[in-house]
């Protein structure tokens, strides 16, 4: 059995909206797939996915370029939003239960600002994958 983590989502940043840093000051990072309506581009990190197998679960790791964040909690509409729209709301609120249905909660602290060409990935530890597939 492999001990390597499984990549459930992998994407490359194609644009960073002008208002993204303002949201980061609130501990929020918003993603949308790059075909999202232009009305949403200002507030979003746009990206193009190459792997879109699953949404995040608690215990997974979100990779923003070289930075990593542990997933603490996930709201009930997160998976649909990510797989349908490439949409994710990352919140550095340290909560272990998502306050809003679209929230992906990670530890309090600074979230790295992404740049065009950076990777955005979600990996799952091998041990939680038993019984899958």
């Amino acid at each position: 059995m492999s001990t390597a983590p499984t990549t459930v989502y992998e994407s490359t940043v194609t644009a960073v909206g002008a208002q993204v840093t303002a949201f980061l000051e609130h501990g929020i990072l918003i993603f949308f797939a790059d075909e999202a309506p232009p009305e949403l581009h200002d507030i979003s990190v746009l990206h193009r996915a190459t792997v879109a197998d699953d949404g995040p679960r608690p215990g997974d790791t979100v990779h923003l370029g070289a930075a990593t964040l542990e997933v603490l909690a996930v709201g009930e509409v997160v998976r649909d939003n990510l797989l349908n729209l490439g949409h994710l709301d990352l919140k550095a609120d340290g909560l272990t239960e998502a306050k809003l249905p679209g929230d992906v909660c990670v530890p309090k602290g600074e979230i790295a600002l992404l740049a065009v060409g950076d990777s955005f990935r979600i990996t799952r530890p091998a041990s939680t994958d038993t019984g899958q597939d």
């Binding site: 929020i28 918003i30 949308f32 009305e39 949403l40 507030i43 979003s44 709201g75 509409v77 997160v78 649909d80 939003n81 949409h87 709301d89 919140k91 306050k99 809003l100 249905p101 679209g102 929230d103």
Partner: peptide, 15 residues
């Protein structure tokens, strides 16, 4: 919208 509470809920009312 089918917004989970952060982004789209604000963007359209803002306009």
């Amino acid at each position: 919208i089918d917004c989970g509470g952060t982004a789209r809920v604000g963007v359209y009312p803002m306009k």
